[in-house]
Design a protein around this nucleic acid. Structure first.
Length: 604
RNA sequence: GCGGGUGUAGCUCAAUGGUAGAGUACCAGCCUUCCAAGCUGGUUGUUGCGCGUUCGAAUCGCGUCACCCGCUCCA
């Protein structure tokens, strides 16, 4: 729970963002729509600057491993290339990635305050206990139920028959179970038996809650044994649409829930056409869509959002080093853009927290004012070869369809496999480069058959042929934009304009403003050409309206780092005033130096 | 999905069931030589939306939508 002061701060930020046109709620004129946001004129410049900074710093001029931090990686060249994939892909992509099926399970929730526990509806069974006599109206169905030898399908058919009949069990128990058989092992207590059935024979029928008879009583929560469970709630986190004019099951498509799969699906294309060599990275910036259960916290959890993702492909033996390299590189990037280190919290996920495909993951978290808990800005995940294996299996029919062959290492090492086994102990090229080497078992294999076979065998295996491992630094463009806004927001009661945004100059939507001190005496005529000169290089604004203080204040709110004011003295000695956003200090510089001054100050 | 709260001008807020207002912002003009200055005038509303009660609803009731807070969830 965030404290009052920080919530108040958050509210002020939200109000400023709306007032000055950074962010609006989507579709406001129609009452809005939960979980969607629009960037206004200033917000769109800010977010564009953020994406441009990322693209420039990660793709065009990527970070390099330094010798002191990563001696084993130092000097290793790697390439970064970009893709821009369609949002809608063949639906099989999402089957392979695990997004279809994995997350469409209906859930049920306990209605009692203080419990509210959620269950997967197909993992909770309501077991109905019936007096056998009640079933006399359907003796055939009943006798079938008693017959343990009937097929599972026949049993389900009978159950379905029961579910549409008006038979209501005298007693129901709700249990968590993986199967109907497991569920049906539950027995009522002796007192329940006595109360409901006396000595009568009982029959037992179990239904999972995603398919239980509507006329049965509400299921009781197996957790608190007190509240009743809701009807199944569909939690389908992917947005669906259809291609073509006809809407049927074959036309169903999904709006991508992550940009990563476009990269994986194009791995072979990029590898075949770009002369990239392992290690290399593919980057993408683009919209993604998740039908979040509960969008919250301003733009933090939106249903439509933009990702800045890298999939970095590397040799399995080096993957942990690259993982650490990227984790550090990404944290440093945030710091380089003015995010205070004490609000930036890298958090290594515990083993139990990791997704099944991931062997390591660090969440880079930021302390937003809306919460006392740090919130995820970016996840740097070690995904192993999971994604390429999945697409290999689903698209090509074999796990290692996207394995690559390391020509360079093979050229260096092939003599080891073409000569007799007495060379077994010879130093291996790759090993000295701090990377992989054939394992001893491979060497034995190599030594036990003919040279040609040995070579062929070795070529087909790691380290020469392998499915690359993937390091995935996946950042949220909107989340970082929000972090930049909250980081920049400053309040100083002593200033005439207490609220201002202290953006890193590189990210500021407007870099400079030009004001004639008064709109007369020939000052606008001097100011306008200065504005036009700046505008050719940096986003700038010209303002001659209202008092000078008000104009400074307006620029403070927009986060403009510098204002140039032309006054009477400009006409005398050709100098203009530079006013600094952060401390409201002023200095004079020569008029022709204005653009140069900005270049120096902005260091862009 | 649950509980609590809030919806009136771009913003902050008024308005006994009886003509929707103020400040601020914004725009125009005047004034003004460095920090939201002053004067004059002006623009801005389906009171979130819908349905009811009423002679009459911003106000009362019901529903709905959105936002905020707390749970819950977030591959």
């Amino acid at each position: 729970m965030a404290n009052e002061k920080s919530i108040d701060r958050m509210e002020k930020i939200v109000a400023l963002c709306r007032r000055r046109g950074f962010i609006f709620g989507s579709s406001e004129i129609y009452g809005g729509i939960n979980g969607f946001w629009d960037y206004g004129p200033l917000g769109c410049e800010l977010k564009r600057n953020i994406k441009d900074a990322w693209w420039n710093d990660m793709v065009r001029n990527p970070p390099m491993p330094s010798a002191d931090r990563f001696p084993k990686l130092a000097g290793r060249e790697f390439q970064m290339v970009g893709v821009d994939c369609s949002i809608i892909m063949n639906s099989k992509v999402w089957v392979a990635s695990g997004h279809v099926g994995g997350f469409q399970d209906p859930m049920v929730v306990c209605k009692v305050e203080g419990c509210k526990r959620l269950f997967r509806a197909d993992k909770v069974y309501q077991v109905g206990f019936l007096n056998a006599d009640v079933l006399t109206s359907m003796p055939a169905a009943y006798s079938k139920l008693q017959d343990q030898s009937i097929s599972a399908q026949a049993r389900i058919d009978v159950q379905a028959q029961l579910s549409i009949s008006n038979v209501i069990p005298q007693l129901t128990l709700t249990v968590e179970a993986d199967s109907r058989e497991q569920a049906e092992q539950v027995e009522p207590s002796a007192s329940q038996l006595k109360r409901h059935f006396g000595n009568a024979t009982i029959a037992k029928v179990a239904f999972p809650l995603n398919n239980h008879p509507p006329h049965w009583p509400a299921a009781v929560c197996p957790n608190c044994l007190n509240g009743t469970l809701s009807d199944p709630l569909e939690f389908n986190l992917m947005f669906e649409s259809n291609t073509g004019a006809l809407k049927d099951s074959t036309s169903k498509v999904y709006l991508r829930p992550e940009t990563a799969q476009g990269i994986f699906a194009n791995f072979q294309n990029v590898y075949d056409t770009s002369r990239v060599k392992i290690p290399f990275g593919i980057a993408q910036i683009g919209k993604a869509f998740r039908n979040e259960i509960n969008p919250r916290n301003y733009t933090f959890r939106s249903r439509e959002f933009e990702q800045m993702e890298i999939e970095f492909f590397c040799h399995p033996d080096e993957s942990m080093l690259w993982y650490e390299f990227w984790r550090e590189a990404r944290i440093n990037w945030y710091k380089s853009l003015g995010i205070a280190s004490d609000k930036l919290r890298p958090r290594e996920q515990g083993k139990e927290e990791l997704a099944h495909y991931s062997s390591a993951c660090t969440d880079i978290e930021y302390m937003f004012p809306f919460s006392d808990e740090p919130q995820e800005l970016e996840g740097v995940a070690h995904r192993g070869s999971f994604d390429l294996n999945q697409h290999g299996k689903f698209a090509k029919g074999k796990d290692d369809a996207f394995a690559i062959f390391d020509d360079e290492a093979w050229e260096r090492d092939k003599h080891l496999f073409e000569q007799s086994r007495d060379r077994e102990g010879a130093p291996l090229g790759r090993e000295s480069a701090g990377t992989a080497s054939p394992t001893s078992s491979q060497r034995e294999t190599a030594g036990s058959s003919g040279a040609g076979d040995r070579a062929k065998e070795a070529r087909s295996k790691p380290p020469y042929r392998y499915v690359p491992h993937v390091i995935e630094p996946s950042a949220g463009a909107d989340r970082f934009t929000l972090a930049v806004l909250t980081e920049a927001y400053s309040y100083d009661e002593s200033r005439a304009s207490p609220e201002f945004l202290k953006f890193h100059p590189r990210l500021a939507p407007i870099k400079a403003a030009v004001f004639p001190l008064v709109a007369k005496d020939g000052l606008p005529e001097i100011a306008m050409p200065i504005y036009e000169a700046i505008r050719k290089v940096f986003p700038a604004q010209y303002d001659a309206k209202q008092s000078i203080g008000k104009r400074y204040a307006r620029m403070d709110e927009a986060g403009t780092p510098f204002c140039f004011t032309i006054d009477g003295q400009t006409k005398v000695d050709g100098t203009v005033t530079v006013r600094n956003r952060d401390d409201a200090s002023q200095m004079r510089i020569d008029k022709p130096r204005v653009v140069e001054f900005l270049r120096e100050q902005l260091r862009i």
